[in-house]
């Protein structure tokens, strides 16, 4: 694993060294080119602000009000009826939070790890789930928003189905490897 950690450490400095050097050799006016690109980056960051705020506000109100907890409690008997091990149900808050908010999900994962212990079944499951999917809802809103797309078609369905598969695969593999 240390090889990969080393690659992660070196890749950005390497990139910052190699790209401008090569470009200069190819007679690109490096500084002026950088500034033009940076301006585009700045404008894009400004452009996504309304989408960021819109998404963050509705998710935050939903979570802080306790509505998420009610849904989790409500769905518990449903999962038991489907024959799920009641112990696994502790993962539901994380599974629901994961596609909505990155920092929120990390908070829930950290809380689960503290509560059950990092080397318990639940701690390993929470770690695996947190690392294996992304904030689908948030990414869609911001990425589409940045280029002015309002009709998302089937994008959310694809993302959420993939997240569901990620959840099922996490439960299966953690039971298999550490069970």
């Amino acid at each position: 694993m240390s090889v990969i950690t080393e690659v992660s450490r070196w890749i950005i400095p390497f990139f910052l060294f190699f790209v401008p050097l090569y470009a200069y050799w190819r007679k690109v006016p490096v500084y002026e080119t950088f500034v033009i690109g940076a301006e585009n980056g700045f404008k894009t960051a400004v452009k996504i602000i309304p989408f960021l705020i819109g998404i963050l506000v509705s998710i935050r109100v939903f979570v802080d009000s306790g509505a998420l907890e009610i849904i989790i409690n409500f769905s518990r008997p449903l999962f038991i009826r489907f024959g799920w091990d009641p112990e696994i149900l502790g993962i539901i808050p994380l599974a629901i939070m994961r596609p909505l908010s990155g920092s929120g999900a990390l908070g829930v994962a950290a809380q689960l790890i503290d509560q059950y212990g990092p080397d318990s079944f639940m701690g390993r499951l929470a770690s695996t789930l947190q690392g294996s999917t992304d904030t689908t809802f948030f990414v869609l809103a911001v990425y589409f928003g940045s280029v002015g797309i309002t009709k998302h078609r089937y994008a959310l369905k694809v993302g959420l189905l993939a997240d569901a598969v990620g959840l099922a695969a996490s439960i299966w593999i953690v039971s298999k490897v550490f069970g």
Binding site: V19, P20, Y22
Partner: peptide, 19 residues
């Protein structure tokens, strides 16, 4: 804003250089 400006700037250099 900061991170995007940095990477879009570097990306633009890489683009102009044909990378």
């Amino acid at each position: 804003m900061g991170v995007m400006s940095l990477w879009m700037g570097i990306m633009h250099i890489a683009e102009k250089a044909g990378l």
